[in-house]
Design a protein around this nucleic acid. Structure first.
Lengths: 340, 340
DNA sequence: TTGAAAGCGCTAACAT
DNA sequence: ATGTTAGCGCTTTCAA
């Protein structure tokens, strides 16, 4: 059977409370010898605290939820970018002795339910739309701490961590402008007036304005962030946008798909058309030409998110406000000067 | 405050047990009207069961652990293959109303600890070495169900799901042999006489034997399964193995790295050297030349693993024995006939 | 420095 | 068809 506090207490001839205090490192509440003896017995018996019991009694679980978008009950294709983040998050949380509940979210209410069901100490939201974040938090209990990664949602209960998407868009545009490109196609998922993609688009446009250039806002394509959709766009690019000499895609896989589509239709990258991606996945150096992209520091993003969340949980830190992390251009072979 | 069974019971004028039965769909234990009324009140109050309390009282948690290797506390780089699996596992488990505890394992004991701490109903081990699996299960309580994915560990408490790695190795070799290759380099991580890589190696060798050919067993390179290590090998391949005309790598990223290294050293794929990978990641079609590889059905693997685990948990099914899933060759552009 | 009592929210095993 | 009792293993609160 399970080894309990009571078992240890009996063996040691003390009360369960003393054992509990020792186990929890409440060192001020037991004599050194008692501590030593109890620790010994606990080790000997292979005692493992019951997280459920602790969570029930203490109303805190040392477990946080990591929530990712799931189109529906039938799918959970985690985006490459979120995948990279999850690994880092788990590591950071494990270092701090928090457990991770991984959950795909198909309907808004599920966040609040999971939170209350397990008495989660906090939640990490990965890559949800700002509207979705708002929905989750509306229903969520007031106490729980929530950090939204890659979100610009502005509300009282959520804290955000994200890359500087606006700067990312601007830098991408500046790079292409410096190469002489003027007709640049913006490609990304459908977006509203907020959120990651919108920021990138705004930064992108800013660079044109700052350069005193008028941008033709018809040069936008909205599609799913997948390789296949990229290929499709690449194939018809020349036909649909004959003037375009460069493309800025809001995700690397998308950019890589576009490059493939272009190749298939006889358009050379970067000679005929330059392509810039976003994220700097490992992938970028696997493909030919290697992809010029906007790099964001994923490990830093994860570390920051966890740091903020744990800070709020443990020290009831003043919500320090959203954090925006720097990005930078990684120039590779998919961009070049415009053909004269 | 939290809404409890008691709150509902009071409002409905019944005992908590009746409410409990209704909530748990124990339909035989309450009259239709009572059920209706209680359900109504529960919805109204926004009742969410406490998983901790349930887990404590019922000694079952409806939560399973998904464990992945973590080199140490400092890292958790989930392999691309495991990444693909995790998403599928979560989906399958969510469909069956199980929660997922995601955990990187740095030291053997952590599996048993997590299992007991949360009263987990079962565990899914992803891509551990057979020796590691043995260690975990040795320390684990007898009751818990464990399914090891990508393992050949043979022990009483574990059930395995894996691709037919032996066939995979054989098929890869047969493909290359049919193209006229005789000096084929086997590349993979260090392996012992068991496990996934060993199976692939054995299958690989079998094909040579079956063809009545003597294989030079010096044609083996052991290195980490990473792109970078692949590049390094590719660069020195010609110098170290001048006779080799084809390479079989046990992972796609590795194969892709090798192709890059070969390119850098002026060796053409597939004209000079053919390359075969393993897994059939999305990646394979992004690179040039596209990678010929052994495909395994990841979704099926995840579905099977969950099916087996849940089967054991819920029906105490007779451990049906390990399951091996089929693989097949996906021929792309990285392999061609040997140069005469 | 230590302990006793009470209860977290739920369910198993009997009653009725 | 419904209720009672007695915990699950732990922590909180108060007392010694």
């Amino acid at each position: 059977m399970r080894v309990t506090l009571k078992d240890i207490a009996q063996r040691a001839g003390v009360s369960t409370m003393t054992v509990s205090n020792v186990i929890n490192g409440n060192r001020a509440r037991a004599s050194p010898e008692t501590i030593e003896r109890i620790q010994q017995i606990a080790d000997e018996l292979g005692y493992v605290p019951s997280a459920s019991a602790r969570s029930l009694a203490a109303r805190t679980s040392r477990m946080v939820g990591v929530f990712v978008p799931a189109a529906d009950e039938e799918s959970l294709t985690i985006s490459p970018h979120n995948v990279a983040i999850i690994g880092q998050l788990e590591r950071e949380l494990r270092k701090r002795a928090y457990d991770v509940l991984l959950r795909g979210i198909a309907r808004p209410g599920e966040v609040a339910t999971a939170l209350r069901s397990w008495n989660l100490d906090g939640a990490l939201l990965l890559g949800f739309l700002d509207e979705e974040v708002a929905l989750f938090t509306a229903r969520s209990a007031g106490r729980t701490r929530i950090v939204a990664v890659d979100s610009y949602a502005d509300n009282p209960v959520t804290l955000g961590v994200r890359a500087d998407d606006h700067a990312g868009g601007r830098i991408a545009a500046e790079h292409l402008l410096a190469l002489g490109h003027r007709d640049v196609l913006f490609v990304g998922p459908r977006f509203s007036e907020a959120g990651v993609v919108w920021q990138r688009f705004e930064g992108f446009r800013c660079a044109f304005t700052a350069a005193g250039l008028e941008r033709d806002d018809r040069l936008v394509e909205l599609l799913n962030t997948t390789y296949d959709d990229g290929v499709t766009l690449g194939r018809r690019l020349r036909a649909d946008h004959p003037s375009v000499t460069a493309v800025f895609a809001t995700a690397d896989v998308l950019a890589i798909g576009i490059m493939e589509g272009l190749r298939e239709s006889g358009v050379r990258v970067p000679d005929d058309v330059s392509v810039v991606g976003f994220d700097d996945l490992d992938l970028c150096v696997y493909v030919r030409p290697t992809l010029t992209t906007i790099a964001q520091d994923i490990a830093a993003k994860a570390a920051t998110a966890v740091h903020m969340l744990v800070g709020e949980i443990e020290h009831e830190d003043q919500p320090s406000g959203p954090v925006t992390l720097g990005v930078h251009l990684v120039q590779r072979m998919s961009t070049g000067p415009v053909r004269t």
